[in-house]
Simulated scan of single mutants.
Amino acid sequence: MNRSIDERIARVTFNDAGLVAAIIQQWDTLEVLMMGWMDAEALRRTLIEGRVTFWSRSRNEYWRKGDTSGHAQYVRGARLDCDGDTILVTVEQVGAACHTGTRTCFDAVDLEPFAAAEPPA
């Protein structure tokens, strides 16, 4: 079924601030790159333009990834989770995804568990 942009956005459950978490993942390696916030307009721009746009809570403005850094994210796909409150956006990442200059915001292992749990048999 080919739904309109507005019909797709209407399926999203935005939080009380009007935002939804967007997890950004490299489309071919499945590497998790970053997380950002989107409101309905940022999501609309992302889906229509094919470039990831976020809502900056600290600056109170939209920012399209890569416009100032050159490290753009080109949308390959977007999915809504089962609760409708998280979006997974698969992208072709150009350059670093993290504002620190690293490929991913999840390079740190500071929360690595002490012991790995085994799945039940």
Score class of each variant (00 low, 15 high):
Met1Lys: 15
Met1Phe: 03
Met1Ser: 15
Arg3Pro: 08
Arg3Glu: 11
Ser4His: 10
Ser4Asp: 11
Ile5Thr: 13
Ile5Gln: 12
Glu7Tyr: 01
Arg8Ser: 11
Ile9Gly: 06
Ala10Met: 11
Ala10Gln: 09
Val12Lys: 04
Val12Trp: 00
Val12Met: 10
Val12Ser: 03
Thr13Asp: 09
Phe14Met: 11
Gly18Gln: 05
Gly18Ala: 09
Leu19Ser: 07
Ala22Gly: 03
Ile23Leu: 12
Ile24Ser: 07
Ile24Asp: 08
Trp27Val: 02
Asp28Trp: 00
Thr29Met: 12
Val32Cys: 08
Leu33Asn: 03
Leu33Gln: 04
Met35Thr: 10
Met35Cys: 14
Gly36Glu: 02
Gly36Arg: 01
Gly36Pro: 03
Trp37Lys: 04
Met38Ser: 10
Ala40Tyr: 01
Ala40Phe: 00
Ala40Asn: 07
Glu41Arg: 13
Glu41Asp: 15
Glu41Pro: 05
Ala42Thr: 02
Ala42Met: 04
Ala42Ser: 13
Arg44Asn: 02
Arg45Gln: 13
Arg45Asp: 02
Arg45Ile: 01
Leu47Asp: 09
Ile48Phe: 07
Gly50Pro: 03
Arg51Gln: 12
Thr53Arg: 13
Thr53Gly: 01
Trp55Pro: 00
Arg59Ala: 14
Tyr62Thr: 00
Tyr62Asp: 05
Trp63Ala: 03
Gly66Gln: 06
Ser69Phe: 01
Ser69Val: 10
Gly70His: 08
Gly70Asn: 12
Gln73Ser: 02
Gln73Thr: 00
Gln73Cys: 05
Tyr74Arg: 15
Val75Thr: 11
Gly77Ile: 00
Ala78Gln: 10
Ala78Pro: 03
Leu80Ala: 03
Leu80Asn: 04
Cys82Met: 05
Cys82Ser: 12
Gly84Val: 05
Asp85Val: 09
Thr86Met: 14
Thr86Lys: 15
Leu88Ser: 02
Leu88Asn: 02
Val89Asn: 11
Thr90Ala: 15
Thr90Met: 13
Val91His: 13
Val91Cys: 10
Val91Phe: 08
Gln93Pro: 08
Gln93Leu: 12
Gln93Asn: 05
Gly95Thr: 01
Gly95Asn: 05
Ala96Asp: 14
Ala97Ile: 03
Cys98Lys: 07
His99Ser: 11
Thr100Ser: 15
Thr102Trp: 07
Arg103Cys: 01
Thr104Met: 08
Phe106Ala: 14
Phe106Asp: 04
Ala108Trp: 03
Ala108Tyr: 03
Ala108Asp: 13
Val109Ser: 10
Val109Ala: 14
Asp110His: 10
Asp110Thr: 11
Leu111Lys: 12
Glu112Phe: 13
Pro113Gly: 00
Phe114Leu: 14
Phe114Thr: 02
Ala116Val: 14
Ala117Ser: 13
Glu118Trp: 08
Glu118Phe: 03
Pro119Ile: 07
Pro120Gly: 04
Pro120Asn: 04
Ala121Gly: 10
